[in-house]
Design a protein around this nucleic acid. Structure first.
Lengths: 337, 337
DNA sequence: CTGAAAGCGCTAACAC
DNA sequence: GTGTTAGCGCTTTCAG
């Protein structure tokens, strides 16, 4: 069923029917109700792509994330969806699986009119903004959330990574750790580097010597490899006595390693993790976390994106919002078990 | 940049350019390479909606799920995405938040040409298929996964819920439980009822008396309410000595309650949960699970959907696939701590 | 208040 | 091999 058929059935012109459905005031009430009735009888709704083609809007936004099976990102999607739903917008979800090449291809797909705007959390491999420049050239509004490209002027929704990194190290030190270590997920991601730098700053302030080696371990992004790395670390002679995991996945692996290797948390090793996992309290032992407001970050990113979409004179690219994370103390960093 | 401009720049007709980009054999190699060069110079890609409008394909499928912040569903999305990516298809993700009304609205949105097919896991409130009939009427291929509507002929990808329910009860009984109980998430969902019925069948086979009351508790879908229900259950005089949680969320709540109420798992209470959570091993205590092949279910559902989309004489609606789940024994059901 | 007509950007007959 | 034309389903001027 389309406009043409509907119009024919009603003995009206296509444009009259279209306007009636649009509740235009140039159409008489009588005609309107006749049209509406026929439309609902046939379950008619306009073809979104035809109307989009004409109006040059897709009512769709692209959400590009590294991974969906991840608490942070799935909660962020919830935040994004809560706004999109209100606006009558649809969500095209794309997964980069932390590969730059995937991300490049996806962004390309978003640059040809498929979406009215893009929300992105970049892959762990992304160091260049070339693919994103393309979006700007095509005037597709863009908002980064959580993982942004540092030297690229665009709207961002971030969290206080440096401060949180600092806090996590401070917390370990205050609970007796002499040789804390930071497990980094990526040396490319500014977000990760900020956390690491905050961590290092705290070590400095608290006079924890790090003369010989930098207490940061860069973990592989391949699960088997990072597991092995963490395993080696935990079984080595100079095992750290405290660890900050820069992302949730590494914390989970660390817990598994400790269980397999009979390393006792928090007795042998204290752990803080950047994580939004709701079940941190029921882990063994319960996990001290730096918890980001994932839903909120998604929500704010979407809100700003829509402002950018809806008003051309809103300076979207200047919008940088920081939403603070919280340190939640639990058993994994307690001084005594 | 569009075809028209490109054609003008090349001094060719629109259709020649279109065919050249399509690598049609009616176009000379020389022209093709000229066109390709110009196209890549301008980063030209066809507007997907215009071409879709013409070809009557959107290269998009709709994925309707209750919730994305859930291990099962996010893993299923990964499975779906792995197939969609190969096919060059895009994923529109919709969340019903387990409300029928949301689902109805979403399905409506999928019935007007926006998608070439739909994958759905129904909401816990969905008992009628009215909204889905709409899709069939519009010839939009449909595949259920995990949560299907029983009396509705359509393609389905399910797991062996009855058998798994049976197994979980059997496992509890064999480990000494005399009064096991089943926490149901919804009395509407066939998937949940199948699990419950399997559970009951095992009780019957093993002569566990259930003369007085049916050992099934229907939990509220509101988190605070179900928490309270579980809390009351665990603090009551006739607390069960074993529990099967029909979905992951209920297991997590049960663990929290037990921690707060000092109920010891597995000493006071043994627990089996339908759950895909990867961190079951590091829960406190590690959790015995019935683990579904979430990725695989998503993958197979997508595969069948694409068969239905691509070949009209494939009898999609007859395709019912069952992918078995596995019982993985861990500490939460061990006989002695 | 209603209708005719142009055109969004593209594809696919069909002619030449 | 290339170009002309019609039309996917819709919105939106512009006429009447």
């Amino acid at each position: 069923m389309n406009l043409k058929q509907l119009a024919k059935e009603l003995n009206l012109s296509i444009s009259t029917v279209s306007k009636a459905l649009d509740d235009s005031h140039e159409i008489s009430e009588k005609t309107k109700s006749k049209v509406l009735e026929a439309a609902s009888k046939h379950n008619y709704t306009p073809n979104p792509y035809a109307s989009g083609l004409r109006k040059k809007r897709s009512n769709t936004i692209g959400v590009i994330i590294p991974e969906v099976a991840d608490n942070f990102f799935s909660l962020a999607i919830n935040g994004i969806q809560s706004i999109a739903e209100n606006k009558g917008y649809h969500l095209l979800i794309y997964l980069s699986h932390d590969k730059y090449e995937n991300e490049r291809r996806i962004v390309e797909d978003c640059a040809n009119g498929r979406v009215d705007g893009v929300l992105i959390s970049i892959s762990a491999e992304t160091i260049s903004a070339e693919h994103l420049l393309r979006l700007q050239k095509e005037n597709v509004p863009l908002v980064f959330f959580d993982r942004a490209l540092d030297d690229f002027e665009a709207a961002k929704v971030l969290t206080n990574d440096f401060e949180s990194g600092y806090l996590s190290a401070k917390h370990l030190i205050e609970n007796g750790c002499k040789r804390p270590m930071f497990l980094s997920f990526s040396e490319c991601l500014t977000m990760c580097e900020n956390r690491a730098n905050g961590f290092l700053a705290a070590l400095d302030d608290f006079k924890i010597s790090s003369n010989e080696i930098v207490p940061i371990m860069y973990c592989s992004r391949k699960e088997e490899e990072s597991y092995k790395q963490i395993q080696d670390l935990c079984n080595s002679n100079d095992r750290p006595d405290g660890i900050v995991a820069s992302v949730e996945k590494l914390a989970m692996q660390l817990y598994l390693v400790c269980q397999d290797s009979a390393v006792s948390i928090p007795n042998d090793l204290k752990v803080v993790a950047f994580s939004t996992v709701e079940i941190a309290p029921i882990l063994n032992p319960s996990l001290t976390t730096i918890t980001q407001s994932a839903f909120e970050m998604g929500r704010v990113a979407a809100e700003n994106l829509f402002k950018g979409i809806e008003s051309k004179n809103f300076n979207l690219n200047q919008q940088v919002v920081v939403i603070p994370s919280k340190l939640i103390k639990r058993q994994s960093t307690s001084r005594y078990k």
